[in-house]
Amino acid sequence: MFDAYVLDCMGAELAERLGDKLEREISGQFLNKGLACSRRFSPGYCDWRLDIGQASVFEFLKPESIDITRFPTGAMIPEKSITAVLIAAKTLYYKTPCPLCGQTDCPYRREDS
């Protein structure tokens, strides 16, 4: 159990760090093209329903082609898979919806706008 617990925690941490790394790289690519880029936003964040959002992302990206399976609830296998979207535009007033959200005690609130 100890090994499984540590590996599970490590897997979650590594997946998040990889997501952050990709976010920085993609943002940089857009910046080089003169476009502002939002923070990554995943199905299940805030009021984006996990099941509906995941279905939309899968319809667009077709991750089944790399053996990622989606459940109707929005869960995925492999378990540490992450889906996310970023918005690139000439002008972005906010990089996340957090500044517009009234839930100031949200533990996931991101203040960079």
């Binding site: 159990m1 499984a4 617990y5 599970d8 459940f71 109707p72 609830t73 869960a75 995925m76 296998i77 378990e79």
Partner: peptide, 12 residues
């Protein structure tokens, strides 16, 4: 439950 694959908590 059905539709969820997160089982670490359950295993613990």
């Amino acid at each position: 439950v059905k539709g969820d694959v997160h089982d670490m908590g359950k295993n613990i």
